[in-house]
Design a protein around this nucleic acid. Sequence first.
RNA 1: GCCCCCGUAGCCCAAUCGGCAGAGGCAGCGGACUCAAAAUCCGUCCGGUGUGGGUUCGAGUCCCACCGGGGGCACCA
Length: 961
Amino acid sequence: MAPDVRPDAESASGVPPHRYTAALAGAIERRWQDRWEAADTFAVPNPPPAPAGEKFYLMDMFPYPSGSGLHVGHPLGFIGTDVLGRYLRMTGRTVLHTMGFDAFGLPAEQYAVQTGTHPRTTTEANIARYRQQIRQLGLAHDQHRSVSTTDIDFYRWTQWIFLQIHGAWYDAEADRARPITELEEELAAGIRALPDGRDWATLSRPEQDRVLDDHRLAYLADAPVNWCPALGTVLSNEEVTADGRSERGNFPVFRRNLRQWMMRITSYADRLADDLDGIDWPDSVKAMQRNWIGRSQGAQVRFASDAGDIEVFTTRPDTLFGATYLVLAPEHPMVDALVPAAWPSPPTGEELDGRWTGGADTPADAVAQYRSVVASRSDLERQEARDKTGVFAGAWATNPVNGEALPVFVADYVLMGYGTGAIMAVPGQDQRDWDFATVFGLPIRRTVQPPEDFDGEAYVGAGVAINSANDEVSLNGLDVDAAKTAIVAWLAARGAGESVVQYKLRDWLFSRQRYWGEPFPVAYVAEGETDGGPSIPRALPDADLPVLLPDVEDYSPKSFAPDDRDSSPESPLARATEWVAFEADLASDPEHGWTEYLRETNTMPQWAGSCWYYLRYLDPHNTERFVDPDVERYWLGPQGPGDPGGVDLYVGGVEHAVLHLLYARFWHKVLFDLGHVSSSEPFRRLFNQGYVQAWAYTDARGVYVPAEEVAGDAASGFTWNGESVRQEYGKMGKSLRNVVTPDEMCDAYGADTFRLYEMSTGPMEASRPWSTRDVVGSHRFLQRVWRLVIDEQTGDLRVADTEPDRDTLTALHRAIDGVRTDLPAMHYNTAVAKLIELANHLTKTYPSGGTPRSVLEPLVLMLAPLCPHLAEELWSRLGHPDTLAFAPFPEADPALLVEDSTEYPIQVNGKVRSRITVPAAAGEDEVRTAALADPKVAELLAGAEPRKVIVVPGRLVNVVR
RNA sequence: GCCCCCGUAGCCCAAUCGGCAGAGGCAGCGGACUCAAAAUCCGUCCGGUGUGGGUUCGAGUCCCACCGGGGGCACCA
């Protein structure tokens, strides 16, 4: 069939009319793409059609549809998942695979600011282009399930989920989130007491609301946040780089106290860390998440001072007897209360060390000076210059274990953001403290016995405690763990401390001063709260969702000079005054007659939509719920005891190891706790594909030149326009001028060749360089397969209905066996090698055509996951009217995998000296006998009895002389 | 500085449990086809696995040290 698919006459000059050329491939590909679309081949309805195979939910990390479109690196993962999905479909699995778009975000908004084009217009145009680029790759997606986070029907549910989180609190005893209404009931009924001891019934309504707000998983807080004046927005910790700049744009970021939406992800710190054990993720990603959560077991210890107890966090309470001073972070709230009016005399009666005062007249001056020096240092400077600086606060605190008066310092090597913002310094066992003590002339006392040969400074290793006893307790002789246990018990009994767990994880800053994001579905009373206190956000009722973005004239947030640290954020939505103010009758305010409300003018961060899109794929058109519970249970539910459930395979780049994947896990667990989903983790298995990288070239001035115009090679040197250029290696991108697009590859070779090339250059997890000139190898292979089936001159079949010879049969079944192992393991490069090997065997064995149909058909089926258009075309020409998308994948016959005889290399003392061939059925003894009988071996043994003969069945024989 | 991953042919990459270093592709070289070239086809060269030790009958594979590359974290008490 299909005589309509022919290359045009012009291109046929010298080329056989039915050769598999780019033009022919393109025609075939368009035809099958149309046919799949018309037949809706890859749609999977809910519930799946009977008889349904075992389900498999396969997912890619959805792309942000940027204006520049795809380059050849982007689809690597998409093609990889498509190959797997197509393979699984052919083995009877019911595969759900689609592709959506993460479409809120900065670029469309920035473009809108520049041109006045509505971000939705830009976004939708970009999505259309992405869809077209993805379609030409022949990916077997269920188009009905594709969603974009900017779809109103989608973000309506993003808002709904926000309200679920806002309407929940974390019950630490039950270790799960519960509806806030249950907290309110328990407080009202007196089952649960207020943390500060007040009586619920005596509180005013606004006071009660504020108590509830203090427990909500989404809450407003005056918190130190990352303010980026140049971007005009605040950023989450995860969006700030280690050197204190914005991940996007690399602008300075300042810490400021601002009232912002936060998500109480810290409540889930333990579960987010512990549950990593139950999911099949790369160890590196698990390690990064654990590191980010940063759980550490330690103790909180109170040191009495004139200004009250100073609480410190330490992971080494066993070293408490070695503490010789305390340090507070410069921002620590107790600093001001501690600082006396004048420099005091030390309790020892000696002179105050001149290094401690920083040359200031009073402690207050010293602290103020130090703080201003610290504030002027960027985070980067702070990190590069690790020299210890600080100043004496003019006060002493008492060590609870021995009553010693310890001087209190203010120093920036202690961070306010971790622990309590205060430490006990133990120079004997901590190198940072050692360094500081050395600079300031503070005493150093070892309390852990270092090994004999230890010649370092602070000793941080294991050992027994020394110098650690008071009248009531002695740690001396105990190892570190036993000493910790003993001293914490002693501290707890005295009320001077207790065991605590600390986390590096902070709550998640969840608001942005941007236009192109989801509006918050909350409102504030326009005239303010009755008690004049801070505004209380009120959840809008479900019937009021979605809260649509208003049309505005100016999409830009107010931005500032990058280093203007004192500026404040101002959202573009705040200017849409007719949208901000609205009238409502909110049932949540039953006692009031308010009708005038103000909307929240911040929007959600881009992560919001990606936190749950995998749930919407399951049930994208549901108007009643974000996902139907039965549908969720079918696709995501736990598959057995101990299984958390979740997407069966999630493929994407490792760059999302912390941000997206941690946020999504957090949301999913909230939804799980509230009973909205049956799975406790979103992604059962995660796989990080590598990146496609590319060579780039710079001229003498260091300017990038177009890589495609560069000639030469590594040996002879590279040139561009006759000028010598330098080669470097990096990401593919516009700035390096080395972009290659899938469109170019489809034009030059066809999508199947492109897919095959991407899959054959290396294992999925490996990054590899793009090399356009290597693509021809994949193309030649497909031409060879085509030629095995189709006569290039006539277009007729070259297939014979004869039986293959035994060698061919063995080659076929070996290939089947290998491909069946490689494809599900995503070892596509080796699967491709095995198919090429088989095709080469057939080309050699049947040089003039007449290849047996019983070999070609399995070859075509095996090629189908990788090169679906070509395979469909050949399958159809071989006389099969239906798509091969659901054709059974070939199975290997074990009987045909073994050969009649086996060749054994014979080693003598580990070196191969001879070879023997024995029947495959030969036992170990027969092989040994045959090996020793070999003349070459006999000669080497020279009549001596071998010390040992090792026979590895099927592998080799090693004779040890 | 700490942690993780990776070093196999000119290049991209294979090699179950430790068992003959080579599956596949590119490039190169030789040839066929062609008036010629391109395209296509056939054939073919190339290394002993980053370096040095160790374990073993046997090491690309396991252990130790070092060198090189990539990634993550980084004053987290």
